Simulated assay, not measured.
Amino acid sequence: MTATATGRAPWRADVLTLFPEMFPGPLGCSLAGQALERGTWSCAAHDLRAHGLGRHRAVDDTPFGGGAGMVMRPDVVAAALDAVAEDGRPVVYPTPRGRVFRQDDARRLAAGAGVVLVCGRFEGVDERVLERRGIEQFSMGDAVLSGGEIPALLLLDACVRLLPGVMGSEASDAEESFGADGLLEYPHYTRPALWDGMEVPAILLSGHHAAIAAWRREQAITVTKSRRPDLWAAFEAARRENVQGEAARGRMTGPIH
Results as ranks from 00 to 15, higher is better:
residue 73 R to G: 00
residue 46 H to Q: 03
residue 22 M to Q: 11
residue 60 D to L: 09
residue 53 L to G: 07
residue 42 S to L: 15
residue 67 G to N: 08
residue 48 L to V: 12
residue 60 D to Y: 13
residue 26 P to Y: 09
residue 70 M to Y: 03
residue 35 A to G: 12
residue 27 L to I: 00
residue 26 P to I: 11
residue 38 R to A: 14
residue 27 L to M: 06
residue 66 G to K: 03
residue 31 L to K: 03
residue 70 M to R: 04
residue 61 D to F: 13
residue 67 G to H: 08
residue 28 G to M: 03
residue 72 M to E: 07
residue 22 M to V: 14
residue 76 V to R: 03
residue 66 G to W: 06
residue 65 G to C: 12
residue 55 R to L: 14
residue 60 D to C: 09
residue 27 L to K: 02
residue 60 D to R: 10
residue 27 L to C: 02
residue 68 A to R: 15
residue 51 H to G: 03
residue 78 A to P: 00
residue 74 P to S: 02
residue 47 D to P: 03
residue 43 C to W: 01
residue 40 T to Q: 08
residue 43 C to S: 03
residue 47 D to K: 01
residue 23 F to Y: 05
residue 33 G to W: 09
residue 50 A to K: 14
residue 56 H to D: 15
residue 74 P to Y: 00
residue 64 F to Y: 15
residue 23 F to S: 02
residue 25 G to C: 08
residue 39 G to S: 03
residue 42 S to C: 12
residue 36 L to R: 13
residue 60 D to G: 08
residue 59 V to S: 03
residue 46 H to Y: 02
residue 45 A to V: 00
residue 67 G to L: 12
residue 43 C to A: 08
residue 20 P to W: 07
residue 24 P to Q: 05
residue 30 S to E: 08
residue 76 V to L: 02
residue 32 A to I: 00
residue 27 L to V: 01
residue 70 M to I: 02
residue 72 M to R: 03
residue 20 P to C: 08
residue 21 E to R: 10
residue 36 L to H: 10
residue 52 G to N: 11
residue 61 D to S: 13
residue 42 S to W: 08
residue 37 E to M: 10
residue 74 P to V: 00
residue 53 L to W: 06
residue 78 A to E: 02
residue 68 A to N: 09
residue 55 R to I: 04
residue 77 V to C: 03
residue 76 V to Q: 00
residue 77 V to M: 08
residue 51 H to I: 04
residue 38 R to F: 04
residue 25 G to W: 07
residue 47 D to W: 04
residue 75 D to L: 06
